[in-house]
Every structure is written in structure tokens, then in C-alpha cells.
Write a protein that binds this DNA or RNA. Structure first.
Lengths: 330, 330
DNA sequence: CGCGTTTACGTCGTTCGTAACGATA
DNA sequence: TATCGTTACGAACGACGTAAACGCG
């Protein structure tokens, strides 16, 4: 058994059992992978894959077991290499972030450009997706960190560090009836309106639906999008009332009217999620600190090794956070 | 980085930094280890060991980190090999048990000889020690399983399976004053006597001391031994009153008088402790089932993967257990 | 007939063991 | 001087890549 064999093994699995494709991913030739796989199976004494003719049809049950162990081993090998790279003060590498569209578009850019300024040789990969995809990509090992938002408890996976809190806003065109109400905005007002919001608000566990349900109301969601920019476009088109994250409101949206929803919908927290027991490169720690300045580097490293949940310094709100960012960089 | 290099690395650490000794343990030559270590350090770019002259003086801080990861990787490699060996129905291998003297001497022999009958090619290694040593040997990876007794909660480490419950007995010579009491034996009676018991009873957290303390008494322990046989010898010599595990009473001890202490001292449970997330060889599962017949094989494998504590079938008492053993083998 | 896998083969790199050397206590 | 680690060298093994053959859709 060799680390190379295991690397080839998971590469084949990750290439959906296409050895040729896998060989390109690991920068080797296809016969090399075939042969190493054969040797590994010979050494272990059983088939890792089910063959149909000459091609691989599926992974054996025992193969699945081996695959899990092999992944762990390769992860640990990567950790060892990270320890080494950190000690050598290597300033190049990759940073793979799995996150939602909103974070990628409105929250992450400053931190990423600050990182790029400090570490020009680090290549950043952003992988947008739904909450499920994001966590899956973290677990699979593709992503170094995930950035994800929740109204309630932190995501159950890995180590979750709170980055900032935020609220939602109601977005309407100027001169929309909702802008001229004499009393404060209520959920009942919104229940009568066609709503345009994120895809996630269709899920039964969405905090939007729940907020309405606890008042005995039900929202009329006429359109959803994964993308705040799309929501704005349809609000401009008069399709309905937008419900979106306050981070998504830009100066260029002055043609629209945004109303506070702090008292209507529960506050959300954006979390940075990491795999437990993983060695992070120095620039990843720096990035996290840039993105969530209230987290000291030692807070992060401690959280990664400690099994018990920690008590965090107070988590800033999005509105305070921007100020803090500016003052910190000044 | 190679698995062989990592294997050499931990071998050197386990041989207390003596490369020559380590080379014998891994069945290789000493220059081979030296060279591989050098290559590994070159690849990682930093020293894993602190050198004094040509010899290794200590492990670098970073080296410790690498060592931990390397051990994990080698453990996983061993797990993969175990999966393979199980699938091939290999009937040879090793079973390393870390346990206390009492278990090794009085509880384990039947199960071990039954195992040897079924798997003549499996070599069993018993490593007696104190509770701390036993758990350390399990964690270090030397032992496949630990067998250990506790009066209260299960050991905090790994996965603990309850094997059986047992009580202590008071052992005195015939015609000792305690044998002719009209009323039931009490702790107060024992407090007036010189006691001979296990070494562990000297520890402040020992259940013996605690039992006395809750009644405001304090035991006079005149002698301790790690070994039940030694305790018996000194009871015979009239040094004092023995307090020991009921398993230690053999038919050949008919020259002594043993008194129930069920109502005086709390019941103990003997636990089988395993490392979590470890693949066990088939014969290890068989052994556990032989030693704790109330545990089905699936109970064991489930407990190894499940993170949550499980509810066990009723745990037999030592006295019932022997009967069950006999009836099962009949 | 294209795609993917296997087999065959030659070259290269690497590892291993033996043996000699060096340093240290 | 005995013990332990490093260096040197030759032999053998193993891995890799190129090229060709085989199956399958």
C-alpha cells in the first residue's frame, strides 16, 4: 500500500470511475493508474471496484470502507504538508471557499482583495452553491472553508466561527404603497403583498416562512432567485416586494426604497465553517481574521483543536463591521 | 512523503530516538532509516528532530505535530489491512490485550483458551498494568483492546462495552473473629481491622476509601499489592483482612473464609475498551463475544461507529456469567 | 470507429543492503 | 573502545511513460 496508490484510488472515485479523467487530475498517465489500482487490489486481496467488461461499474462495499480510510490518510498527509509550508513561510498556495451567492457577492470581496494584496501568489477559488452544497464541499475536502448563514443555531458540521450578524430589508420601488404607511411595518402588511426572495425561503424550515407562521399568516412568494441582483431586477420591474439581506443593498440601489425589517424577521448570523482537526495555512488564518476581525488568530486555532464549543467575543453586526473594517485598515 | 517514511519516523520515536533499535523493530537496516528520515526532512523543509552531534536529542515541536498525524495515517493503513484480512477470512494475526492483573489471572483465561481453540494461529499478548498504563497502551495503539474495572462511570476514553458486574469479598482465615459475628458485617467492623487490598485502594478516588468516608470512617490499609495471589498469601500469614475481587476466590482457597461484601462496597463493572473508529479483526469480535456473551457482534460494531452512547443489554453479574458460559458451550 | 482499459516493453529513478568511515561518550 | 549515525557504492527492484492491442458502445 502506497500513498500514491491511495491518491490514485480516490482520484478514480472522484472522477466517477473514469480512469483516464482521473489520470489527468493527478498529472499521471492512465496506464499508471490502472496498474497501481491492480497492485493495490492484489495486495489487499479483494476487488475495490465492480468491473463490467473492462470498465469500472461501481465501488465495492469494502471499497467504500477503504475509500473513507484512504481519504482520511490523504487529508492527514495534506495537513503535514501544511505544517511544513507554514513553517517555511510559504506565501503561495490555494484558498478554496465554498459559500452562498450573497456572501460571495457582497461580504467577501473586501477580505479577498485584502488577502490578495498581502499574498499575491495565493490563488482564491470561490464555489457558490446552496447551503447543502456548501457544507458538502467542505466535508468532501474540496473547500478549505465554508461561509454560510443561519437564522438559528450554527451549522452542525465541523467548527463554526461566527463572522457577523445581519438583518433583512424590504425592498420596494419608490412611491410603493408600503412606503407611505402611517404605522410601523408589520408582517400582516407583507402577507398581503407578492414577495420576491431567495430560493431558500421556499424550504419549510426557512426563517421567513416560520416568522409568518408564528403569526398565523402565510407569505405569498411569487418568485425566488439564488441571486440578490435578480431579486432587485424583478422588484424594479414591479413584480413584487423584495425580501433580502441588508448586505445586498448598494449605493447604486438608490432608485429603490429599502425598509428596515429588524423587528419583523429574526436576525441571521454568518458563520465560517472549518473542518475539525485540520491544519490551516497561515494565509487562511489571516483571511479569516480579515473577514471577521473580532476573531483573533488564537481564537481560531483553539477552536479547531478544542472539542468543546467555545464562547466567542461579541459578534459584530454587519453595520458595525464595515466601520470596524475601515477603521482597522486606516 | 511515503508511508514507509512515516513508519520509520514513528518507529524512531517509539524506540526513544535510537535509530538502530528502531530499524530492528521495522525489520530494516539502520542506514535505510537514516536516509529516509533525511529525505523526509528535506521534503518537508524543516527538522523533525533536534540533533546533538549525530544523535537525535529530542523531537521538534513541529515534529510532534507531524508525529500525531503520521500515527493517525498508519492507524488508518492498519485499518485498511484489517478490512482486507477480514474479507479474506484470514485466521492468523495478533490479539494484544492490555488489562489489570486480576482480569488477566481470573477472568480472561477461559475466553483466551476458547479463542485459541477456534483460532490456533492467533497469537495473544497480555500486557498487565495499572489502570493508567492500560488506557495509555490502548491509546498508543499497542493494544487492540483494554479490559478494565470501575466502580462508577465507564472510562472516558474510546468506546467502553460493559462485560460483567462483580462485587468484592472479605477474606479472612478460619476462626477469625469476623467469622463469628452475630449481626451482619458492617464497615465499622472493618474499620477496626488491618486491611490488605489492591494498590489502587490507596488512591483517594478509590471506591474502597470512599465507602468508608461516606460513613465517617477511615480504613487502615496495612498492605497493598497489585496481585490477588499476594493478598491471599498475606491473609494466610495473618497480616490482616483481605478485601479483593470475588473473581479471585478459587476452590483452592477453601482454607480461607470469604464473606460477602455486596452490602458494604459498591458494585464494580468490568469494561472492554476499544479505540473508536477502528476496524477489528473477526477473531477480536469473536473474542469479545466469548468474554462478554451478552454482547452480540452487531452490538460491538455498532458501538464502534456510533458517536452516541448506546443502551446495552442487561449486563450479567460474574456469578451468573460463569453459568451462562458453561451453558453456552454445552 | 471513438473511447477507455489493458498489456507489453524499455528506461529511469529509487530503495535497499553491505561495507567502510566518523563521531561521541 | 564500544556504540551509534552517516556516507559510499553496487545490485535489484519498481514505477513511469510510450506504444500497441483489445472490448465495448
Amino acid at each position: 500500500m502506497t500513498l500514491i496508490q491511495l491518491r490514485y484510488l480516490v482520484a478514480i472515485a472522484d472522477a466517477s470511475l473514469n480512469i483516464t479523467l482521473a489520470s489527468q487530475h493527478v498529472h499521471a498517465t492512465q496506464p499508471g493508474l490502472s496498474k497501481q489500482l491492480k497492485k493495490l487490489e492484489e495486495e489487499l486481496g479483494f476487488q475495490l471496484f465492480v468491473r463490467r467488461g473492462k470498465s469500472l461499474a461501481s465501488i465495492t462495499h469494502a471499497g467504500q470502507q477503504v475509500m473513507r480510510r484512504a481519504r482520511k490518510m490523504l487529508d492527514e498527509a495534506a495537513n503535514i504538508r501544511s505544517i511544513a509550508a507554514n513553517l517555511r513561510n510559504e506565501d503561495q498556495g490555494e484558498l478554496r471557499i465554498a459559500t452562498t451567492h450573497t456572501q460571495a457577492r457582497f461580504a467577501l470581496p473586501e477580505a479577498i482583495s485584502a488577502l490578495n494584496l498581502q499574498y499575491p501568489l495565493v490563488r482564491v477559488h470561490l464555489q457558490p452553491g446552496g447551503d447543502r452544497d456548501v457544507l458538502a464541499q467542505l466535508e468532501s475536502g474540496w473547500a478549505d472553508l465554508a461561509v454560510i448563514s443561519r437564522a438559528g443555531a450554527p451549522p452542525p458540521l465541523g467548527v463554526a466561527l461566527p463572522a457577523y450578524r445581519w438583518n433583512r430589508v424590504i425592498l420596494v420601488p419608490h412611491q410603493h404603497p408600503l412606503t407611505s404607511r402611517s404605522h410601523a411595518l408589520s408582517l400582516a402588511d407583507l402577507a398581503g403583498q407578492p414577495l420576491v426572495s431567495y430560493e431558500s425561503s421556499l424550504k419549510p424550515e426557512s426563517s421567513l416562512r416560520r416568522a409568518f407562521e408564528t403569526e398565523g399568516l402565510s407569505p405569498q412568494i411569487v418568485m425566488t432567485a439564488s441571486d440578490a441582483d435578480l431579486i432587485k431586477i424583478y422588484v424594479r420591474a414591479g413584480l413584487g416586494v423584495g425580501v433580502l439581506a441588508e448586505m445586498a443593498i448598494l449605493p447604486s440601489d438608490a432608485d429603490l426604497h429599502s425598509l428596515d425589517a429588524d423587528h419583523l424577521l429574526p436576525q441571521c448570523t454568518t458563520w465560517i465553517v472549518l473542518r475539525r482537526e485540520t491544519i490551516l495555512r497561515e494565509y487562511v488564518l489571516d483571511f479569516i481574521h480579515k473577514f471577521a476581525p473580532h476573531l483573533a488568530r488564537q481564537d481560531i486555532t483553539r477552536a479547531l483543536t478544542e472539542p468543546s464549543p467555545r464562547y466567542w467575543p461579541p459578534v459584530p453586526h454587519w453595520r458595525e463591521r464595515n466601520l470596524a473594517d475601515i477603521s482597522a485598515s486606516a
